[in-house]
């Protein structure tokens, strides 16, 4: 019976690692369990996963991403490398990551005000740009993976475990579609993943912004057929965001609709253009 992370007690790790004090559990477990902790007097999160080939590779990928990238809108690694510990007959892996106090966008009431969605867009643009500069496509941008830092206007993009290294080896089998249902771009759903680029992440950002601004999913709402969200993502144009939130101006609606373009070349191909459009939007 492999270790069940939903009931896993991290005490053996604290024993093996002097100076580590484990606090409350933050993440429910499943593939990865997360605890608040302090190590050598500093706050971190402790991430624990079962040492299986797939999850190990993904953890290595996530750490490689954060090691190569340097952005205030991506988490920083803690002072420990990915470490293996045997617990009975099983092995688990753990590492430390920056502790970010705040709420995920999934936990925030919707519709969110424009004054919050615009900074979220700007922070995510910076994070996606930093990932792409280092050859990565995140592939799993969704409200649960964006955290609003407490008492700041900053948003951090979490969980780069599914990131595609555009120049490196693939972690998933050819033809496998990664990401989260409802938060995948048409490129992700249709293309050979080696051809993916950052514009796929921009599409996912578009889904998040649409959802935050309207409290409606752009491809799963009463105006669209309730058949298959993948089919809708590929084939249907989302209703204009004003359809759900009449307070929205055309500038923000056009920007979000542009992020949701089916063709990559019709989205943004230069980060500075997206940033400039975001900065131009007047917040009432």
């Amino acid at each position: 019976m492999p270790i069940d992370l939903t009931v896993f007690n991290p005490q053996p790790i604290a024993v093996a690692l002097p100076g580590l004090q484990v606090g409350r559990r933050l993440g429910p477990g499943g593939q990865k369990a997360v605890w608040e902790c302090t190590y050598q007097g500093q706050r971190f999160v402790l991430k624990v996963l079962v040492a299986e080939p797939n999850s190990t590779e993904r953890a290595k990928r996530e750490l490689a991403v954060y090691r190569r990238c340097n952005s205030p809108f991506l988490p920083r690694l803690g002072p420990l490398p990915l470490t293996n510990i045997s617990i009975g007959a099983d092995d688990v892996l753990y590492y430390l990551e920056e502790y970010i106090e705040g709420s995920t966008v999934e936990q925030i009431a919707r519709p969110m005000p424009l004054r919050e969605v615009i900074p979220m867009g700007i922070c995510m643009t910076d994070a996606i740009e930093e990932l792409w500069k280092n050859g990565f496509v995140h592939r799993d941008i969704k409200p649960a993976n964006i955290i609003r830092k407490a008492n700041t206007p900053e948003f951090i993009l979490l969980d780069a475990g599914l990131a595609l290294d555009a120049s490196g080896p693939s972690l998933t089998q050819t033809g496998g579609v990664v990401g989260t249902t409802g938060f995948r771009s048409p490129d992700q759903l249709q293309m050979n993943k080696r051809d993916l680029d950052f514009r796929s992440d921009l599409f996912e950002l578009g889904i998040c912004m649409y959802l935050c601004l309207t409290d409606q999913h752009p491809f799963w709402n009463q105006d669209l057929p309730r058949g298959d969200i993948h089919h809708n993502t590929i084939n249907f144009v989302s209703p204009y965001p004003q359809r759900w939130n009449t307070a929205l101006g055309p500038e923000i609606c056009d920007l979000v609709m542009r992020l949701l373009e089916k063709e990559r070349h019709l989205r943004y191909s230069k980060f500075e253009h997206l940033r400039s459009d975001l900065n131009r939007i007047v917040i009432p």
Partner: peptide, 8 residues
């Protein structure tokens, strides 16, 4: 259009 308007 794509090159001139969308991609400036």
């Amino acid at each position: 259009y794509s090159l001139a308007v969308r991609n400036q």
